[in-house]
Amino acid sequence: MKKERFNQIALDGLVRQNPTLRLVLGTCPTLAVTISAINSFGMGMAVLFVLVCSNVIISLLRNVIPDRVRIPCFIVIIATFVTIVSMFMEAFLPSLFESLGVWLALIVVNCIVLGRAESFASHNPVGESALDGLFMGLGFTLSVTLIAIVRELLGSASFFGMELWDPSKFSIKFFTSNAGAFLTYGLFIAIFNVCYNAVDRKLKHKHAQQTLAPVTVAETKEAE
C-alpha cells in the first residue's frame, strides 16, 4: 500500500472524519459511557475490535453478498463479533462488563460500525478496510476517553478512577449527570470544530503558497 493512502486513511479516522466529533455518529454510547474514563476506554477498545473484525470479514465477502440483502448480512456479521466481545469481557473483565452493561450489546446498532461497513468495507480491499477499522476505532476511543477525562475530573475529582483531590472540597456534580453529558459533548464538538477549521485554513494557505511558488519563479524567468 502506498504511504499516501495510509496517511489518508489514518487522518480520516483520527481527525477529518472523526466519528464522534466530526460526523457525530454513535452518540448514544458516547453520552452514556463517558461518565468514567476507564469505562470509555474499555468501550472504545470493544468498538475498535468489532470495527476491525467486521470490516475485514465484510471486505472479504464484498463480492459474495448480494446488494439487496447487504444490510441484514452486515448486521449478522457485526452481531457475531459483538457477541464474542461481550462473552470475552464477561469471562475476563467482569467488572468492566458489569459497568458497561447494556451498551456492549448495543454496539450492534452503533452507527459507526454499520456506517463503515456500508461506506468503506463493502467496496475496498481487505488491508485498507482493516486499517480503516483500526483508525476509526482509535478516533472513537480517543475522543470518548478525552470527554470522559474532563467529565470525571470535574464531576468526581478523579482521573481514571484515581482520586486526585477530595471531591467534597471541589467537584461539580452536574458533570456526572445526564444533562452534563449533553453539555460536555456539545462543547467538545464546538471546540473541535474551531481547532479543525483553524488548522485546515492554515494548511490550505501553506499548500497554496507551495504550489504558487514554483510558478512565480518560472514566470519571472520567462519574463527575463
Partner: peptide
C-alpha cells in the same frame, strides 16, 4: 449539533 446538544442538556435537567 452543539446548540442542539445544549438544548437537550436543559431538557435532561
Amino acid at each position: 449539533f452543539p446548540m442542539t446538544m445544549i438544548t437537550a442538556c436543559f431538557m435532561a435537567m
